[in-house]
């Protein structure tokens, strides 16, 4: 399982690099294909970038920058995505996202 988690983290990083400066359009098919095969193996992952953050979110390990103000925090960077697996139809989180959290810009 650790190898799969490693692969997913790499796919996430590749995707992020492509989004910022790469040729995402051309390789998005390949990324989708990899995701499809991971799904066949029972693994899905989610990038929570820009989502709201509060301390009920136990799907993320947050590193909080600056002050924490309830209801005003968001995920500004995702180092690792949330990885889910499914056993007997019950979803399970096998990796929490590692994220940077900060206050939403005014």
């Amino acid at each position: 399982m650790e190898a799969i988690i490693g692969i997913i983290n790499q796919v996430h990083e590749v995707n992020q690099k492509l989004e910022t400066k790469g040729d995402l359009i051309n390789v998005s098919r390949n990324i989708s294909r990899i995701k499809h095969h991971l799904e066949e193996l029972g693994y899905t992952f989610h990038n929570p970038i820009n989502e709201d953050y509060n301390d009920t979110r136990t799907d993320c390990e947050a590193n909080i920058i600056g002050d924490f103000t309830e209801g005003k925090m968001y995920i500004s960077k995702v180092i690792k995505p949330i990885i889910f697996t499914e056993t007997n139809n019950a979803p399970n989180i096998i990796q929490k996202a590692v994220v940077i959290v900060e206050q939403k810009p005014e």
Partner: peptide, 24 residues
């Protein structure tokens, strides 16, 4: 949440509970 992605923590209860649940 059963997948471990959400936890309200322990909250004082009243006869009416209203909670926002975060969905995966």
């Amino acid at each position: 949440r059963e997948d471990g992605g959400y936890d309200t923590g322990i909250i004082k209860a009243s006869s009416k509970i209203r909670e926002f649940l975060t969905l995966a």
